[in-house]
Simulated assay, not measured.
Amino acid sequence: MTFKLAVFGNPIEHSLSPLIHQHFASQYGQDITYERILVEHTFAQKADEFFSSGGFGCNITVPCKLNALDYATELTPRAKIAQAVNTLKFNGFVNQKPQFLGDNTDGAGFFQDLKRLNCPLKGSNILILGAGGATRGILPNLMDYRTKVKSITVANRTTAKIRKIFENLQEQVDTGAFLELKASNYESLEPDMHFDVIINATSLSMNNELPKIPPELYSHAQFVYDLYYTKDGSTIFTNKARSLNVEHCYDGLGMLVGQAAQSYELWTGVLPDTENTINYIRSVLQQQ
């Protein structure tokens, strides 16, 4: 069987998804096609064209994740929690109408990468910077009581959005009795605060800018992760942390590959090992 796959978004020409999924397929002897599809007008029209031509599944990137949420006829539990869809799978017909399963693999891909990197989660105090869609995507896995995280602080310019995210997720995620959730603005972060893990979920690294937090926060941390990724694995954020003697600093390429692996499993039934693909994609990036 040939799986006809694609990624939808705008812009889309930079997407690494075709390379990632083709590398997965080559490792497991599976046959796929994978294309980039630019969405200039309506997502639904482009998706209809793709699936009516034999499309089996697709990834969705910005700015189409909410459109894909509306397009899906069924949602996985994690898509319901995220209220955004980054993966669709054709699910046959009901009463001659096509059915599409919508999933969100961002949080699972992120969490998979933290485990790959031996991130110290149990008993840890975590600081997440930013309160956008990326933070909402990664929070459910961190908040789950089985992770045994001690506290999660989300910092943003204002706290109203953070509190709303916490309220919504607490209705859907079993956090257990002991997880402490805190909302903070950047100005309230004090130099003497200790966070074991710091996660940059802002887009600042893309513009070569640093979050406005006390430098001491980096030096207290054991593990730093930037959701943004680069050719060599170093961002302005990870470089700052490394300059302050943080030993374990990582960019977000592993999350990108991890969320792709979760999508690939949904389509093919095979969950790829990500290590080889991360190394392969990194080598491709360094050659560009």
Rank of each mutant, 00 (worst) to 15 (best):
T159D: 06
F195K: 00
E209D: 11
N207Q: 15
Y186M: 04
S184L: 01
E265Y: 13
G92T: 02
L5W: 00
I81A: 12
G29D: 08
K80T: 13
Y28L: 09
Q262R: 13
D31L: 05
E13Q: 15
P11G: 13
R78H: 11
E247W: 00
V284D: 06
K115C: 10
S53P: 00
F100C: 03
N168I: 08
T135D: 05
Y186R: 01
S263P: 10
A260Q: 08
E13W: 06
D113N: 15
V62Y: 12
E187W: 03
L142Y: 13
E35L: 03
R157W: 07
P18G: 06
Q286L: 14
F100V: 06
A241L: 03
L227E: 01
A68W: 05
I152Y: 07
E171C: 12
D113P: 07
N67Y: 10
L101R: 09
L121G: 10
T159H: 01
N200C: 10
I138E: 03
L204Q: 12
T105D: 07
E247D: 08
Y34R: 02
T268Y: 00
G109N: 05
C119W: 03
I236A: 04
L256A: 02
T268V: 04
A25L: 08
Q112S: 14
M206A: 11
Y186N: 02
E216W: 05
L129D: 03
S17T: 09
G29M: 10
